[in-house]
C-alpha cells in the first residue's frame, strides 16, 4: 500500500499529465502540418479508438446546463475516476467506479474488468452531443414519440425474450449501425482507416464492418443509390473540404436501429441522413463529428463530436461476434427453461 500523500501526489501528477496530453491532442500547435497521402489527399490513415471519450455522457447531465466543458475541479474529479479505473483494470481488480459501481447490487454479474478499455486521456467534454446548445437530443416528433412509447410498452409485456427478434440488433451480432459503431463503449472501440486514390475505407473492429467510401470532387457528388435499395450501414459518398473528410450517408433501413451506443436508443427512420466530418488535429488525433438529420424522428438536427485517438500498441483483432454468439442460445434456452418451471410451479 502506498502512503496516502504519495498516492495523492501520483494522482495529481497523472491529472497534470493527462491534462497536458488532452490539450496536445485537441489543439493543433501552430507549426503542425496535417500529413498528406502520396496522391495529395489529407492522410487519416491508422488505427484510432474512441476510448478517451468512454464515460463521457451521450446527453449532457442537466447540472451542466449549456456548458460544454468541465471546470478544472470537475475535470480533476473525472481524471481521478479514470485513474482509479485504469489502475484497477491493470491490477486485475474490479474498479469501484463508473460502470462497475452502477452494477453494484444488481442481480447479475457485471463484466470482469479485464474486458474493459479506459480513457488514456481524460476528456473535458460534458456530453458527446454538442448541438443543440443544451446537449440534449431534440424533442421527438409526435409520430416518433408514439413509436418509442409503443416499443417500450411491448418490451415490458414480455418478461422473457420469445425469440431472437426480442433481442437488440447488437445482441444478435447483426450491426450497431454507423452512429453506434463510432460511439465509445466498454471495449473494441477500434476504427481502422485506410485510403487509396478515390477511396477511404473505415473498418470498425466490433462486428468487423468495412465502409468503402468513394471520394467525389467537391460540389460534384455522384448520386446515391435509388431509394428502393437500403442497407444497415447505408450508402456513403465522401469529399474533401480543406483538411476534412466529409461523408454523407443515406439509404438506411429504418425502424430497427437506434441513435445511441451500440445501436440502442431512439430508433431512426429510413429518412436518416448522416453528415460526418473527420479532421486530423494532431499526429495522434482526429476530431470526429456527425450531424443527424431525420425529420421523421427529430424536430431538429443534432450533432455529436469527440476525438478519436491513437493508442500505442492498440491492435484490431477479428471480432467474430455472430460466430461465437453463445449468449443468444443461452438467453433463449434459459427463458424457455424458466417458463417450463413456472408452468409447473403455478
Amino acid at each position: 500500500m502506498l502512503p496516502e500523500h504519495r498516492l495523492v501526489r501520483i494522482v495529481v501528477l497523472c491529472v497534470i499529465v493527462a491534462g497536458t496530453a488532452f490539450a496536445q491532442a485537441n489543439q493543433p500547435s501552430g507549426n503542425w502540418t496535417p500529413p498528406k497521402t502520396a496522391w495529395g489527399d489529407p492522410d487519416l490513415q491508422g488505427v484510432w479508438t474512441s476510448d478517451d471519450s468512454f464515460g463521457v455522457p451521450f446527453e449532457r447531465p442537466r447540472k451542466y446546463g449549456n456548458r460544454k466543458f468541465l471546470t478544472d475541479d470537475e475535470y480533476a474529479a473525472r481524471a481521478k475516476e479514470n485513474e482509479l479505473i485504469s489502475t484497477s483494470i491493470q491490477a486485475g481488480v474490479t474498479p469501484q467506479a463508473g460502470y462497475w459501481l452502477q452494477h453494484d447490487g444488481v442481480d447479475y454479474q457485471p463484466y470482469p474488468s479485464n474486458w474493459s478499455e479506459y480513457a488514456r486521456r481524460t476528456s473535458r467534454q460534458t456530453s458527446l452531443i454538442v448541438d443543440p446548445e443544451d446537449g440534449q437530443l431534440p424533442p421527438l416528433t409526435p409520430q416518433a414519440m408514439l413509436l418509442r412509447a409503443g416499443s417500450i410498452v411491448a418490451s415490458r409485456r414480455k418478461p422473457h425474450p420469445e425469440s431472437w427478434e426480442d433481442i437488440n440488433m447488437y445482441g444478435r451480432c447483426i450491426t450497431r449501425g454507423v452512429l453506434g459503431s463510432m460511439l465509445p463503449v466498454m471495449y473494441s472501440n477500434g476504427t481502422d482507416i485506410l485510403q487509396s486514390p478515390g477511396l477511404v475505407v473505415i473498418r470498425y473492429e466490433m462486428i468487423h464492418e468495412a465502409r468503402v467510401i468513394p471520394i467525389d470532387p467537391p460540389n460534384k457528388p455522384h448520386p446515391h443509390l435509388p431509394a428502393g435499395l437500403r442497407t444497415y450501414m447505408g450508402d456513403p459518398r465522401g469529399h474533401w473540404e480543406s483538411n476534412s473528410l466529409v461523408v454523407e450517408t443515406t439509404n438506411f433501413i429504418g425502424g430497427r436501429l437506434g441513435v445511441g451506443t451500440n445501436g440502442d436508443g431512439v430508433s431512426y427512420s429510413e429518412d436518416l441522413r448522416l453528415v460526418e466530418r473527420f479532421t486530423r488535429t494532431s499526429d495522434r488525433s482526429i476530431q470526429y463529428e456527425v450531424t443527424v438529420f431525420d425529420p421523421k424522428t427529430f424536430t431538429a438536427s443534432w450533432t455529436v463530436a469527440f476525438p478519436i485517438t491513437q493508442e500505442p500498441g492498440y491492435q484490431i483483432f477479428e471480432y467474430a461476434c455472430h460466430e461465437g454468439n453463445y449468449s443468444m442460445s443461452n438467453i433463449l434456452s434459459g427463458a424457455r427453461a424458466e417458463e417450463k418451471v413456472q408452468s409447473v410451479v403455478k
Binding site: 497521402t37 502520396a38 485506410l194 475505407v201
Partner: peptide, 10 residues
C-alpha cells in the same frame, strides 16, 4: 483496396 497501410479485402 490497395492502401499505403496494407491491402484490404472487403
Amino acid at each position: 483496396v490497395q492502401s499505403p497501410r496494407g491491402v484490404l479485402f472487403v
